[in-house]
């Protein structure tokens, strides 16, 4: 589903070029569960932003579902994010003035889904993350774990094929963190491709496939064959 070939990403910081990613080549098949690990500054967030089409590579080819993203315009990339990619962030990024249901509806609002259908799908997504009784609460009235579950409902409400999670447990206590991990792993088990960026080894090793970055270079790409039975991992490394 995802094919990165010879990806470079270079930033200018104070006039100095910083090479955040260097010659990254990576294939991720549909339904895989991949963790991207590395120290701070290793380029893992840059890689995630590229995968999510929030950013464009300086060089190299990124094909999403067989289509070259470099050839896409701003509108097509927005469309791709809207329909194919869900994001979960470390800091949740809920809109404070909207209720839980309102936040989940947000992607559908910008996609032009009619209100009645929006409400129904948002209710379903909230039910899926176990937050139906909290649907009319605002983010400030929810615990961290609940906020992250709202964010997950929002990420999957457009039924994307790829879920990108950036340190999804980084801002949560361990109990809430475990709930969140169970939730997104459950979605992966239902076929959603899951890419988790983390520097937390305990979270990272849960993925069947672990990609390690150091200084913008992929230094390891291991598939733990012992764990799980999904064939996605084999296809991915093939």
């Amino acid at each position: 589903m995802i094919e990165l070939a010879g990806i470079h990403r270079t930033f200018e910081v104070g006039g100095q070029p910083v090479r955040a990613l260097r010659d990254v080549t990576l294939r991720i098949a549909g339904g895989e569960y991949v963790s991207i690990m590395g120290a701070s500054g290793s380029g893992k967030s840059t890689l995630l932003n590229l995968l999510g089409c929030l950013d464009r590579p300086s060089a190299g080819s990124y094909r999403f579902g067989g289509e070259e993203t470099a050839a896409m315009g701003e509108l097509e990339l927005s469309n791709l994010r809207r329909h194919r990619i869900g994001f979960v962030f470390q800091f949740f990024h809920l809109v404070p003035r909207l209720t839980a249901a309102g936040n989940v509806e947000l992607p559908m609002v910008f996609a032009g889904v009619p209100p009645a259908e929006r409400r129904e799908r948002a209710a379903q997504a909230l039910a899926r993350v176990g937050l139906t009784p909290r649907a009319e609460h605002r983010p400030s009235q929810l615990s961290g774990g609940e906020q992250q579950r709202v964010a997950i409902a929002r990420a999957v409400v457009m039924r994307p094929s790829l879920l990108l999670a950036d340190e999804p447990t980084g801002n949560l206590d361990s109990a809430s963190g475990r709930e969140i991990v169970d939730l997104i792993e459950g979605m992966n088990a239902e076929g959603l491709t899951l890419v988790v960026v983390t520097h937390d080894p305990l979270l990272g090793v849960r993925a069947r496939r672990q990609v390690r970055l150091a200084d913008g270079v992929v230094v390891a790409d291991e598939t733990a064959g012992a764990r799980g039975t999904a064939s996605g991992a084999e296809r991915g490394s093939a």
Partner: peptide
């Protein structure tokens, strides 16, 4: 700013 970034992430176009 955060909200704008989020809107873009969930698929809002620059025009929106």
């Amino acid at each position: 700013t955060h909200e704008i970034g989020l809107l873009r992430a969930v698929g809002a176009t620059a025009r929106q």
